[in-house]
Amino acid sequence: MNLFENISFEKLIEKVNPPLILKIVIIFFIGFILIRVVRFILKKILSRTMNKQSLMLVNKFFSYAAYSVLVIVIMAEMGIELTAILGAAGILGLAIGVASQKSLGNIISGLFLVAEKSFEIGDVIRVGDKIGVVYSIDFLAIMLKTFDNLLIRIPNETLISAEIVNITKFPIRRLDFSLSVSYKDDLEKVLDLLKRIAFENVLCLDEPLPFLLLKEFGDSGISIQFGVWFEKSNYVDVRNSIILEIKRRFDEENITIPFPHVTLYYGDKESS
């Protein structure tokens, strides 16, 4: 089959005339505006029921499909035989599909991720050692914007098999501090002081109550786990203010935070 028999350049030039150009331009502009309008309406309607990433995917899918239809309509108007082109496109599609198995895997993984709803645009997630805000969810990969303003692309196929921690899924979080106090300190006084630190901090929630756990008898002191609940947006402020306050109040109350000491003994000449 000679694919290009029906779309030879000479035949095309012969057919082209000013009314046809005008017609094509009109079709293009009407089609373009129509696609934009439908996309806008679709976005308005679906935004009430869909989350951001599903909306983005639907929007992209619609755009690709609609522009493809527009190109086909314009080509038909130009008198190009479409059957042959579509047949060729099918073969080409198959060839591309075979050649890009990875990409297909990414697309399918992306669909699973969207259906799973484990995160959405704007969430802070941790994948391996990477932490960032989900910037966009595309067909092949997601984009993470890190806190030092870098953009990381993670393929969907990697994500589907990786452990993802969604840090901002729930509105409140608990922040745990591990600290230890020396054996000579009054533990009840320490626990009471930590409770007061949590209650007096305006960024910590009164309820759920702060979590206090005497963990173990350590090498140089008794380990304590101290957890405070806070609204997810206050992470940095809560962390800084609680550490500052623990240090200040422990100093005031003469509570010792033990740290490893290294004592060096110089060899005695006489004994050696």
């Binding site: 729930f170 209650f199 929630l205 309820e207 759920p208 609204e231």
Partner: peptide, 19 residues
């Protein structure tokens, strides 16, 4: 008078409130 904040309900589905 500044009221401290609290959480009413379960940690995954409650609501923020004053205490």
């Amino acid at each position: 008078k500044s009221l401290s904040r609290s959480w009413f309900g379960d940690p995954d589905s409650g609501e923020i409130a004053y205490y």
